[in-house]
Write a protein that binds this DNA or RNA. Structure first.
Length: 468
RNA sequence: GGCGGCGUAGCCAAGCGGUCUAAGGCGAAGGUCUGCAAAACCUUUAUUCGUCGGUUCGAAUCCGACCGCCGCCUCCA
């Protein structure tokens, strides 16, 4: 299995530090607002990565942090005249609601910055002791010049950065690129007492402290959006490696942006849609299919057109799953000449190649086409065949990509009853058809459709599907 | 200004030295099945991969120049 590593700028064979264990840390949200569909892309792609690693048999420990102290949270709290905690709690809750709706598998741990002040403090002390951090009036800064490898992730050079036009001017810093580890609290801001006075942690140090605590000083995979490479992840490396003198992360993965009209979707540009808004109109599966059809690292230009395209594609998948679910129970006949193992292999080859989900999706569609062809042959086939196909889809498109809707109408006893009633209706309609009472047959179809059930007459019998 | 990425059919998007007369999805046209409908299937829809050169027996894939687009260098997934 290969992963493109931002640190080395090449695809590398994935060798975990401690197989079969794999530690993954993904930069989560700053909980000051609902997250937008661009953020959702990162969360979903990280989800697919961890699901695939589990599929491969790795024992994954997946950590996603919540930044719950931050300038933006404080700003919002001030605007509303409430405590910063109120804002953080409100949007943490919203975050969990939204990722659940997006069918994102829960992380093993969601550490919060405010619950790791002790670890953060220890880390800063360590850096201070080594002479890498310095204090100025209650603020503590990281001295970028003290870390020789600064810039190794982003490919930037300190000198070039300094001459850049947009470096913040702050006379307190030794070097314009130095960044805050600890911020002196202004009145009304959340604060904790520390050796440097009342204050709060800087953003970058949180992730170093929390990832280290939950995954160790060196761990396998760290992922996040492309815009975090610099300065966030660069600074994390500086902090962690500066303190521990050992490699921080083995593989760095970065997700491409979701663009709108060719521009990065972001809160600051104002060209965003929240994930919640989208979920009202499109299902999680549609969004996931859409994202899966582009490689995680490439930019993805968002538009109604591609959304509709994904929706149609998903319908094709859903129709198919309903069809085989139906046949799984009733059909009897031969097992057709098809080697499902071939599709597993192709799926894995695609995913093994730096999580090539577009290719993996193509395998799913190939399978669907091939099986549809078999079903169109007019012959009946064994239920075992259909359940094998279904198992394949559940394992790959379902458990890894998350693009299979639950089509089971029959889940409990009461719906079993519904099933037999539906079958009765189908039989009656068949009688009507036999007597060429097409008006009546069409009426039944029409009425059922209004109730959300679609009747379809196929070569091998009538099937009924529920609208999903 | 520095650093990085991208440009493949009407749209989206894989492919990254030969199996490419280039996957897959959407769309479009015609057809099959059907009482009709729906679903599905079949056929067609890029001899060509931004442009121009070069390397090579061989290039969408490597190199160079140019054109166009985007991102990072400030909070941002």
């Amino acid at each position: 299995m290969k992963i493109y590593n931002t640190l080395t700028k090449q695809k590398e064979e994935f060798v975990p530090l401690n197989p079969p264990n794999v530690g993954i840390y993904v930069c989560g949200p700053t909980v000051y607002d609902y997250f937008h569909i661009g953020n959702a892309r990162s969360f979903i792609m990280a989800d697919i990565i961890q699901r695939y690693l589990r599929y491969k048999g790795y024992k994954v420990k997946f950590v996603m942090n919540l930044t719950d102290v931050d300038d933006k949270i404080i700003k919002k709290a001030n605007e509303e005249g409430v405590d910063a905690k109120v804002i953080a709690e409100r949007f943490s809750k919203a975050f969990f609601e939204d990722i659940e709706k997006l069918k994102i598998k829960k992380a093993d741990i969601y550490p919060k910055a405010t619950e790791h002040i002790g670890e953060i403090e220890d880390l800063i002390k360590k850096l201070e002791k080594k002479g890498i951090a310095y204090k100025v009036n209650g603020d503590v800064f990281y001295d970028v010049r003290k870390f020789k490898e600064y810039g190794k992730l982003s490919g930037k050079k300190i000198d070039e950065l300094e001459s850049g036009a947009r470096v913040e001017i702050n006379e307190k810093k030794h070097n314009p690129l130095d960044f805050a580890l600890w911020k002196n609290a202004k009145p009304g801001e959340p604060h904790w007492s520390s050796p440097w006075g009342e204050g709060r942690p800087g953003w970058h140090i949180e992730c170093s402290a929390m990832s280290m605590k939950h995954l160790g000083e060196t761990f396998d995979i760290h992922a996040g959006g492309h815009d975090l490479i610099f300065p966030h992840h660069e600074n994390e490396i500086a902090q962690s490696e500066g303190a521990n003198d050992k490699p921080f992360v083995k593989y760095w993965i970065h997700f491409g942006f979701l663009n709108i009209k060719n521009e990065k979707m972001s809160k600051s540009l104002g060209n965003f849609f929240t994930a919640r808004e989208f979920l009202q109109k499109y299902s999680a599966e549609v969004i996931r299919l859409l994202f899966s059809q582009t490689h995680y690292a490439s930019p993805l230009n968002f538009s109604d057109e591609i959304l509709n395209s994904a929706q149609k594609g998903l319908e094709k998948i859903t129709n198919f799953v309903q069809e085989i679910s139906f046949r799984e129970n009733i059909d009897e006949g031969s097992y057709p000449d098809i080697d499902l193992q071939k599709y597993y292999t192709r799926f894995e080859e695609a995913m093994d190649d730096d999580f090539n989900t577009p290719k993996a999706v193509a395998v799913i569609f190939d399978l669907i086409k091939d099986v549809n062809k078999i079903m169109n042959g007019g012959e009946k086939h064994s239920g075992k065949f259909y359940s094998d196909v279904k198992k394949f889809l559940d394992k790959t498109a379902g458990n890894v990509l998350g693009i299979i809707k639950n089509v089971n109408i029959t889940k409990n006893d009461s719906s079993k009853e519904i099933d037999s009633l539906l079958n009765l209706i189908v039989e009656i309609r068949q009688e009507a058809k036999n007597k060429k009472a097409y008006d009546l047959a069409d009426l039944i179809r029409e009425k059922l459709s209004k109730l959300g059930y679609f009747i379809q007459d196929t070569k091998t019998g009538t099937t009924i599907k529920k609208k999903l």
